[in-house]
Amino acid sequence: MASKLEVLEERESDILTLVPVGRVDSSNAPVFERVLKDWIDDGETNIIVDFSKLSFISSSGMRVLLIGAKGVRAIQGNLILCGMRDSIREIFSISGFDTIIPVVKDRIAAVDTI
């Protein structure tokens, strides 16, 4: 059974911001995947994932973001990541994910990117 994950959801006009809280690892990545997938299936085209309340993410969580980016791309939308601490930013760089999913400093920059 998957562990819990709190994901805050905030809307400002046509932009949805998701804020996962704490850790995303293999025990709760399926929860994160379901939240993101439900919004994309509902046709949400502008999604920001704000990492500022996230202390840890593993490849299981990164995989969810890759799936999300592909899903949003299929409906001509945008998935933007922001607010990463240095350790998380580093693994997005090593994996090359930052070359295929936009990663910006904060929410203001994320809104500008959309």
């Binding site: 592909k70 693994i91 994996s95 090359g96 295929i100």
Partner: peptide, 22 residues
């Protein structure tokens, strides 16, 4: 593969790569 475009990027195989890199 850590360089291909979004549409062709395989999902998975990444964890061990991160561990070895760091």
């Amino acid at each position: 593969d850590t360089t291909s475009e979004l549409d062709s990027r395989p999902i998975g195989g990444l964890g061990l790569h991160l561990v070895k890199s760091q």
